[in-house]
Design a binder for these strands. Structure first.
Length: 570
DNA sequence: GCCGTTTTCGGCCCGACTGTTTTCAGTCG
């Protein structure tokens, strides 16, 4: 069983135990362990092979949980999980997804009304039987009815691009409200997590009701869910929820820190505060009644003897162990973009237009990388057409000033582990990205063979969007990252962070592993039109989440140095 | 269920808001 399946099993176990009324701290231990496994860079199976006792050295995993995780990893089963599954109907677990219902209320509904499915619950609520239970009323009953459809399509998160776009528009409109001094985005959108489940916005304002009125009237807002003195919760068109919090200036830093999260990062900060006899909450850092910090974030971190930690790193994945502040890669560090398409295949713009747009965007060098023939849907290029295409690029690049252009190719790695174009053609390219597009559902051993054979090909410079995932719509290929990254490192092949917000592939965890192995990362837009370069921002922030400095990213180099890297690696 | 130099028991992060209540439990982030 892979890590993500183990995580799912532990989370399910935690849900089930909660519904059965188990001790809340015990449940939390299971969730903590799930988090720990989730952030591991190695497969549990690999860890166990190296050292069967190593699990207990991980945070929050003791003897008992180590045994359970070992059982899951080795056999894919856990007796305790089977036992509790038998005690709780699957539909009851689904009820946890209904907003406003937690384990206590769901357990009450299940026991008191004998409802076992969402449909049972809907019928009971419609018949008014929910409101008759002690502790429930008419409003709860209605919110259950409203929430059932949400539960049925649960797990819905939006791409970071969608989240940032909506949050940005709303923040901008709030900044126009008289009396509003400052508005900032917080939450997972500020951390640039690849998907967001909701949005958080913070404001300083003398008059919170004016800001809240403006939010309520915003065209993106569909419904006001709750409104108090300091907090308003709304549902946006499309179903995403947004929290607005109005805070005083002296607490702004504390609130911004607090609502940026992650929850796991904040738990550690509050523990560090406690150890120093301090109390941290969204109003500030306090010694008794006295505020030690709170006006700005840096002051809070400083009071806890920490450097200010960039939001992208606040996941409790090692950011507290870094001794010095680190320099993360920024948008302006990026000088090149090595993955884009033209009308030769499925792009919407010509070679000339793409070069011009890249120059306008401020890029100093690019590679044109159209598809190879296997991608027939995109009018992929065979050897003959590709050579003609390159000749055209060569002619055009002579006329282009202020930007360097490489003749590249995005070459498919076929299902039989061969490349889509012959070696003698690839040898003529300035730049070769090899990618998986088809056969992503092959078993792990075949995927591994394909990636490794591409890496070993001397003409391949880079593996593009390694997993092939499309967030929310296509699952990633099953990759053994341990062997994949080792091979890339051994053969000097670069790896791409594809900046398309639906890809963001490598993901943050694997990109961090690649950095540790010294593998050069390239952040590419995969542009299909002249406006496509703007997505580079998402790739940059994914790289920052992985802790990448400018030196870790190959296309922050000058064109001359980048070319030398390609040659050296071949 | 985990954890530990105040430890092997007794803690485990904290506050706003809602709904259903007359003082609070549950949920959420």
């Amino acid at each position: 069983m892979g890590n993500s399946q183990i995580v799912a099993a532990l989370e399910e176990l935690a849900d089930l135990l909660e519904l059965l009324g188990e001790n809340a701290f015990r449940v939390r231990a299971y969730r903590n362990a799930a988090r720990t496994i989730e952030s591991l860079s190695d497969d549990v199976t690999t860890l166990l092979a190296d050292s069967p006792t190593s699990l207990t050295s991980l945070d929050g995993i003791g003897k008992d949980l180590a045994e359970k995780i070992t059982s899951l990893a080795r056999t894919g089963t856990l007796k305790q999980l089977d036992d509790v599954r038998a005690q709780v109907p699957a539909g009851v677990v689904q009820m946890l997804k209904i907003p406003g219902l937690g384990p206590k209320k769901v357990a009450t509904l299940w026991k008191e009304l004998q409802v076992h499915t969402l449909e049972d619950l809907q019928a009971a609520a419609t018949a008014g039987r929910v409101a008759s239970i002690k502790g429930f009323g008419k409003k709860t009953e209605q919110s259950i009815l409203d929430g059932i459809s949400l539960a049925q399509e649960a797990g819905r998160r939006v791409l970071i691009s969608v989240a940032r776009n909506a949050a940005g528009q709303i923040a901008e409109s709030l900044r126009q409200v008289p009396g509003v001094e400052r508005v900032e985005i917080a939450g997972s959108a500020r951390r640039w997590k690849e998907t967001c489940g909701d949005l958080d916005i913070l404001a300083i304002s003398a008059d919170s009701s004016a800001a809240m009125d403006t939010l309520a009237r915003h065209p993106l807002v569909e419904q006001v869910l709750a409104r108090g003195e300091t907090k308003q919760q709304v549902r946006l068109v499309g179903g995403l929820d947004l929290d607005l919090r109005v805070v005083p200036p002296e607490s702004f830093g504390a609130a911004w820190q607090y609502f940026t999260g992650s929850k796991e990062h904040n738990v550690v900060l509050r523990r560090l505060s406690q150890e120093r006899g301090l109390k941290l909450n969204e109003y500030g850092l306090f010694r008794g009644e006295e505020a030690v910090a709170g006006r700005d974030e840096a002051g809070i971190y400083a009071a806890l003897d920490l450097p200010w930690i960039p939001p992208e790193l606040r996941e409790n994945r090692g950011e507290f162990e870094r001794l010095a502040p680190i320099e993360l890669v920024e948008r302006q560090d990026l000088r090149g973009d090595l993955h884009m398409h033209t009308t030769a295949t499925d792009g919407a713009a010509t070679i000339e237009e793409m070069i011009e747009a890249a120059k306008d965007f401020g890029l100093q060098y690019i590679a044109i990388t159209d598809h190879s023939k296997r991608v027939a849907m995109a009018n992929g290029l065979d050897s003959t057409r590709l050579r003609e295409h390159w000749r055209r690029i060569e002619a055009i690049r002579k006329q282009a000033h202020g930007i360097e252009v490489l003749c590249g190719i995005e070459c498919d790695i076929l299902e039989d582990a061969t490349l889509d174009l012959p070696d003698e053609v690839l040898a003529e390219a300035d730049w070769v990205i090899a990618v998986l597009h088809y056969g992503l559902r092959q078993p792990a051993e075949l995927i591994e063979q394909r990636l490794l054979s591409a890496i070993r090909n001397p003409h391949v410079d880079c593996i593009g969007h390694p997993s092939g995932r499309l967030i929310g719509s296509r699952a990633p290929a099953e990759i053994n990252y341990t062997t994949f990254l080792k091979a890339a490192s051994d053969h000097g092949v670069m790896l791409e962070i594809n900046a398309n917000p639906a890809r963001l592939d490598l993901n943050d965890i694997q990109a961090a592993r690649a950095k540790d192995l010294g593998i050069p990362i390239v952040i590419n837009s995969d542009s299909h039109h002249t406006q496509g370069f703007s997505v580079l921002e998402y790739g940059i922030h994914q790289a920052r989440r992985a802790g990448l400095a400018p030196a870790d990213v190959a296309n922050t180099r000058s064109f001359g140095d980048f070319r030398k890297m390609i040659r050296r690696n071949r």
